[in-house]
Design a protein around this nucleic acid. Structure first.
Lengths: 350, 350
DNA sequence: GTGAAAGCGCTAACAA
DNA sequence: TTGTTAGCGCTTTCAC
């Protein structure tokens, strides 16, 4: 079978159901495939006349270019993989917003993969994404399975690990120090005069950022000669409701606790609602603080103390790193540390 | 240049930075590319001995297959596009969970695209997705630009429009009738004896589902000889806070209103918190209801009346349709209507 | 059980 | 400005 014959077997007469190819547009417009390709990509000089003819034909046929073939031929893929643990809490959607904002004008498209805080899922998602040879990869966190670590290191494209900078990135990193964030909150709490402090958080061994915040928090307590008065963990279910339940449990067990430090704003909000309902004196008798600075807090009866995790900015900076590295590949990664601001709100006395 | 020479120019000695190919694994293991490919895909019979050698070589090199080339050659792509308007509210993440659950065991991977309720963005995202020739496409809503509609109809892969069934799908659809949902809520409110009813919602001309709920709601009011006593819209910002503000505005303008119907649970929750703070008699003097059945409501001081939008189930069924259609292509679409349950909670009197 | 050849639909590079 | 040629890295098909 000759080349020509093979190509001929590809005409639209053969199978009306198959998707259109460049060749169909070429035949319909009477212009070579190459020129059609040029028109459709706005590349190179094409006369206005041919340009019009081609666009007309493409539009009439309803042609949608095959990016698979294009990517293989050009060795370029306009995709940026984003690997995150969850969409359910409010934090990652905002990171995505930052990423999308920056990528919007670059022709790059974010592609999201969710790991549910499972290292195995993460490994699988990273493998899957790299197999599409994206322009870059944004991955939440610095902790990965050994195999995942190896794949990232070998990938040959910019990798940006986000959210956290307490550790060693494979390539670039953009985030905050959660250990420091925990420390700062503890210092603020201690400075406000609270002494019998409890921690309430998620039971997620793979949420390394929450873990680091707690470590930093306890570190600062220890430095002041204090230790956690109590700790309570949960997993699954409505965070707001869990916040209530945990708070109730801690206060029942330990009525003289004077501060509740929550690993995130959602359970903190639940705790706050509970305390207000019980008529507790907040922040006089008992103080509360969360983490993330989620928008939701604006609508609560009282402003929960929190720390802004710089989510939007993290997304933006990460995307900028990917978008800004044409094909350098070799350049060493950069580490960008952002600094969250402590928002004392109305639940820490001053 | 001969074919052989061309291939030789591709050896790893050439450029240590380029990503690995099948050929590298072939050379490292001393087995033909074809057999390597078979091993890596678990296809066809391969002797245990060669199998081991190949896997060993692949692992050592850190080879990640190039799916672009694979997809082009096999005309198969294990991707399912999911086009949704937003990640910020709680509704779409749950749909994604349903989709992921079902696709997990099928080898198919969801790829998310976000439109921010913009028809133009939607058109662009659909175009982009189709250009990767996915196995199927899941799109939120039945309303699309003419061009988008045409692309979907031409796509040649199963298309599932989700969330809504009040309209004509391009192919398949899974969702609820928002018009009916609005009607049902109105009927329940009227039956409970409320008469001076206000609507509070988002100002989003492209949120067709919210619009349809309101239409159904007003339709049922009209049938009972009633009309909306007031209406208030917002856009942007913290939904919880907006819910408060809108509620305050409505009550200031119209103190004798006895029911507040919100277009979503988040603003409804804000309104509920406001009413409780003001010491209003809920549900005696004033009733409230939202829409969606979000988990967050579980943690509120009182249960807001709502309607479950069947989000998880919608995601599951949509994914099943895609996963269940091998390559039929031609078969007509199916329409699956789900029926939300009204949860009266504690904010409608009975 | 294994390998060789052909080509998926596009684009880079060069020729005209 | 336009066209021709040679692949991109894999899988299909068929031969051994």
């Amino acid at each position: 079978m000759t080349f020509g014959a093979a190509k001929l077997s590809n005409t639209s007469a053969q199978d009306p159901r198959r998707t259109l190819t460049l060749r169909d547009v070429s035949e319909a417009s009477g212009v070579s495939e190459m020129t059609v390709s040029r028109v459709l990509r706005n590349r190179g000089d094409v006369s206005e006349a041919t340009r019009e003819r081609v666009l007309q034909a493409a539009r009439t046929l309803g042609y949608v270019p095959n990016k698979i073939a294009g990517a293989l031929a050009s060795q370029r893929v306009n995709l940026v993989g984003v690997v995150i643990p969850s969409l359910s809490n409010m934090v990652f959607p905002e990171v995505m917003t930052g990423i999308s904002e920056v990528l919007e004008d670059t022709g790059l498209q974010p592609v999201v993969g969710v790991t549910n805080y499972s290292p195995d899922r993460e490994e699988a998602v990273i493998y899957e994404m790299l197999s599409w040879r994206p322009t870059g990869l944004i991955v939440a966190g610095l902790e990965h399975s050994e195999a995942a670590q190896a794949m990232l290191a070998q990938a040959g494209v910019p990798i940006v690990e986000i959210m956290d900078i307490d550790g060693t990135p494979v390539d670039s990193a953009v985030g905050i120090s959660h250990r420091r964030a925990g420390r700062q909150m503890a210092e603020a709490i201690i400075a406000a005069g609270y002494r019998r402090i409890a921690f309430l958080g998620t039971q997620m061994p793979n949420d390394h950022r929450a873990r680091k915040r707690l470590e930093g928090f306890e570190e600062a307590l220890a430095k002041a000669g204090l230790a956690l008065a109590d700790r309570e963990f949960y997993s699954g279910g409505s965070a707001l409701l869990k916040g209530r339940e945990m708070t109730e449990a801690v206060l029942a067990r330990n009525p003289d606790v004077d501060f509740l430090y929550y690993s995130n704003d959602m359970i903190g909000a639940g705790g706050l609602l509970y305390c207000l309902e019980k008529g507790l004196d907040v922040p006089g008798k008992i103080g509360l603080a969360g983490f993330n600075g989620v928008e939701l807090l604006d609508g609560l009866p009282r402003r929960l103390a929190t720390m802004d995790a710089c989510r939007l900015e993290i997304g933006r900076r990460a995307a900028e790193i990917i978008a800004g590295k044409p094909h350098l590949g070799v350049v060493g990664g950069e580490v960008i540390e952002l600094f969250p601001t402590l928002q004392p709100g109305d639940t820490i006395r001053h």
